[in-house]
Design a protein around this nucleic acid. Structure first.
Lengths: 125, 125
DNA sequence: CTTGACCTTCACGCCGGCGTCAACCTTTAG
DNA sequence: CTAAAGGTTGACGCCGGCGTGAAGGTCAAG
């Protein structure tokens, strides 16, 4: 399929697909006229990429991680076991980030309930 | 106190403090020689700013929100109760983000354990 | 033949929170 | 007097994931 079709099937812009290629995350074949030619698996690949990016993993990281993933990223290709340490650090990093966000969320929730109880005292609607 | 002292007391760079002023988040007095003169409360103010930024609130938003906060941001000035809805949206946003990260963390953990169990099968050390 | 939808490769723009010069003034210590 | 350690105002840089042209080739329909 050409870039437009993958674009609509994967739900990302053509620019994004070209960017992913530029970053080494996709390697589409080329038609005789120079057009990019994507395979069906690239739809899955894009989903994996989006998943990683959504997690705060950058394209450099993703480039190393992607070849080690199959399905939707729930498995590791045996040959990539040496990346486990890196994965662990990344997981720790994410856990840290989650903890930060959770602290903020808790604080926000505190503000909200405090504000709400004081407002309902004055204006219970 | 001058900028250097606030910098070390608040744990942020001088550049950051000037930036906050530029964004209208701090309004230090000026000494006769032009130096910025901060009050003790500005230490708290910086903490509040950092809290909001950590919450994903940008400086424009923070400029509106800050006058409504006291303490470390755990309370709202009564007059600003209309900000509650905004905080709620922000909290939902953060919760979403946390869920995303948690999904990825889970996936990463799955990859790690899968890789580890397959490697220990071959090389139990 | 022309139109228009699609494709191609540059290549600059943008956001947001600062880092990091540069060039200069002020104050204190020796 | 001089050096060092502060302060001041610009103003450009950076990251990362694209958006958004510009300037052109390709291809099928009318």
């Amino acid at each position: 399929m050409k870039i437009g079709e993958l674009s609509s099937r994967a739900g990302v812009s053509s620019r994004t697909l070209r960017y992913y290629e530029e970053q080494g995350l996709l390697e589409p074949a080329r038609l005789p006229n120079g057009y990019r030619s994507y395979s069906d698996q690239d739809v899955e690949q894009v989903r994996r990429i989006r998943f990683l990016l959504a997690a705060g993993i950058n394209t450099d990281m993703a480039r190393e991680v992607l070849p080690c993933m199959v399905d939707d990223g729930s498995f590791l290709v045996p040959a990539c076991e040496d990346l486990v340490a890196e994965f662990e650090r990344e997981e720790a990093h994410i856990a840290e980030r989650i903890a930060e966000l959770d602290a903020v969320r808790t604080a926000l929730a505190g503000i909200i309930t405090a504000a709400r109880s004081s407002s309902t005292r004055n204006a219970p609607k």
